[in-house]
Design a protein around this nucleic acid. Structure first.
Lengths: 176, 176
DNA sequence: GTTCTGGCTATGGTTTTCCAAAGCCAGATG
DNA sequence: CATCTGGCTTTGGAAAACCATAGCCAGAAC
């Protein structure tokens, strides 16, 4: 099997990445890294509500169906990780409270949310239930697409994986 | 606050979706649905290896760092859910085994994988480690973009949520 | 000052997720 | 036939995620 040639329709492996027995992803995988912050059901559900415009504690508890304890610890973690901001607000006749809003880092999760919704849509065929995301004005439904920096839409069979910096990785493994 | 107007930069809520106190997502949320199948760390790591072209049991165990027991049960679940196929193969001098490959439904997770990697990339700044996905030939790095069916790239502040079928939802809630 | 309420926090227990280590079995090898 | 090996499976247990219920506290409301 030559470099990159594989049995099935998956990512083409390029360069030193193909010789994967000589190294492991250790703590380098970006997916693992992302999942440390948003890899629980409760985190994703709270984030969903944040994207839907929810801002208050009991909103999150009621609309996600999660217990208050879980919501509290999840909001605390999301805040510590810089995905949500707390800011004080005050309703007439009420005391000062905090509301929760997405930070820029949190808002950058948008493609993940959209991709999950799109994929989840294909799992069953109750296409009249649930919500849809649309482009304001244009009104066309949204989806997540894989594109390269040059602007081409890239299907799986035109994509490849490789190490970002082979020399650096080899050096790091050497002194390991 | 009128329909859709909100404090922060999130999804605009349209129509009956704005009156969210009268209904709940129940079992209708596509994100929850997706997370039932791929919502664990182990599932995502095994899927990562499948996209990288891994096919065999001990490959998954070694490269994900998961225990064999977890890999076995995850592969079983992914197969039951129709994300991977098992197919028999035979190496010379070895007995017949099964290898695991992504089904079409599994391959459709591609945008989710890409979006997760892209977001994970922004979390720390060790930009020399890890892997990158590129467009074959073009060589430009990949990312996940939100676009509408009409082809426009859609930032969060130009997107909206609404119920797919308000009448259907109201009827369903009525006989609830 | 007493009461009430909204916004959490604490407690105890169940389920899910994971690991480490040992076991098992089909079939190749000797 | 006896042994070995690759590919799982089983067992036992720790840790994380979750729920239900009860509690607590700041500050309106009275």
């Amino acid at each position: 099997m030559t470099d990159g040639q594989q049995a099935s329709d998956v990512l083409q492996r390029q360069g030193a990445f193909a010789a994967r027995d000589e190294w492991t992803a250790k703590g380098w995988c970006r997916i693992e890294r992302a999942l440390e912050l948003i890899g629980t059901r409760s985190a994703m559900l709270v984030l969903r509500e944040l994207f839907y415009g929810g801002t208050r504690f009991d909103e999150f508890a009621r609309r996600t169906g999660l217990s208050e304890a879980v919501v509290a610890s999840r909001l605390k973690q999301l805040h510590a990780d810089g995905l949500v901001d707390r800011r004080p607000y005050r309703e007439a006749g009420k005391r000062t409270r905090d509301e929760y809003v997405l930070t820029e880092r949190g808002r950058q999760l948008f493609p993940i949310l959209v991709a999950l919704m799109q994929w989840g849509e294909t799992l069953r065929d109750d296409h009249r239930t649930g919500v849809e995301l649309v482009h304001r004005g244009c009104d066309a439904p949204l989806g997540a697409q894989v594109r390269c920096a040059a602007g081409h839409e890239v299907p799986l069979n035109q994509a490849a994986v490789r190490l970002k910096d082979e020399d650096y990785v080899k050096a790091a493994l050497g002194r390991n």
